[in-house]
């Protein structure tokens, strides 16, 4: 049995947003963190490992520096990592990304007892599309917005958190779950995990490693395989300091002066 966790490196929201002249994000210039919901997905997998002794594999698509994030996840307790990286994959939107990640998960191999974990959504794109798309492309049953998981034989009893209530479902493995922050509290890296993390296996899947998968065609991945394109990204203009008014009369007076009313 194994748990495969899909994770994404995202810009640190505490840092500054950098935009290239062509309007796309300058990711190399921004500090990065592991996407917060993905840490909940990793924690869910690690708890399953604590309970059952299963193997935990973390997988991400990104540029070579994403290895740093994968090492940190190994330091938290993951057994091995896969970095999906290649020029051919660049510029992928959620559709192309899920195509590539699904192929990578296929290559790792999904056994009858296995579970694929994803975070609900990434804090940069906020689409919440990649997890469900991977499930569809792998023909796996999926449960989104997961806030509780119980293992019951070869089934999982999973609780979903919706806007107006909860839903409890039973799902057979193999399946894909997208996790939300209410599911758990992610653990820290441990000192021993950190000192071991560079000795654990990290495989790189490039285009050649995945090209034989039926999901991978030149027009299903990268910029060409992306039905959506970022037209422009920009940092919102900083709002000036506000002004406190003493009374309604004063407010009306100001608006009047500016010929707004």
């Amino acid at each position: 049995m194994k748990a495969i966790v899909c994770v994404k490196q995202v810009p640190d929201t505490q840092g500054k947003v950098a935009v290239k002249p062509d309007g796309t994000m300058d990711r190399a210039a921004m500090a990065t963190i592991t996407n917060p919901d993905d840490l909940n997905a990793v924690e869910a997998a690690l708890q399953l490992k604590d309970e059952t002794g299963c193997e935990v594999v973390v997988v991400t698509m990104g540029p070579p520096p994403a290895e740093g994030m994968l090492r940190e996840l190994i330091a938290r307790g993951a057994d091995r990592a896969v970095l999906v990286s290649g020029r051919e994959f660049g510029g992928s939107d959620t559709f192309a990304t899920s195509q590539i990640l699904a192929a990578a998960v296929n290559k790792i191999g999904v056994g009858p007892e296995d579970i694929v974990f994803c975070g609900r959504q990434a804090i940069d794109g906020d689409t919440a599309q990649v997890g469900p798309q991977i499930a569809e492309k792998l023909h796996l049953p999926q449960v989104t917005y997961v806030t509780d998981i119980k293992k019951d034989g070869d089934e999982l009893v999973v609780k979903r958190q919706l806007e107006d209530g909860y839903m409890e479902l039973k799902v057979h493995t193999p399946c894909l779950l997208t996790c939300i922050k209410e599911l758990n509290q992610p653990r820290y890296m441990s000192v021993s995990g950190i000192f071991e993390c560079y000795d654990k296996p990290l495989e790189v899947f490039d285009y050649n490693a995945l090209k034989d998968d039926p999901l991978i065609e030149t027009d299903t991945i990268g910029l060409k395989g992306s039905p959506t394109n970022v037209y422009k990204s920009f940092a919102p203009p900083v709002k000036g300091a506000g002004m406190m008014v003493e009374s309604v009369d004063q407010l009306v007076g100001i608006l009047n002066d500016k010929h707004l009313i």
């Binding site: 820290y188 890296m189 441990s190 000192v191 021993s192 995990g193 950190i194 000192f195 071991e196």
Partner: peptide, 26 residues
């Protein structure tokens, strides 16, 4: 639980297998 009570002792004696500077930084 995170290994901070035995940072620089080797794994064989139950330590975290780290180094002295990592202990000092803790």
């Amino acid at each position: 639980k995170l290994g901070m009570m035995g940072v620089y002792f080797p794994k064989e004696v139950g330590g975290a297998g780290g180094d002295v500077l990592s202990y000092v930084m803790a």
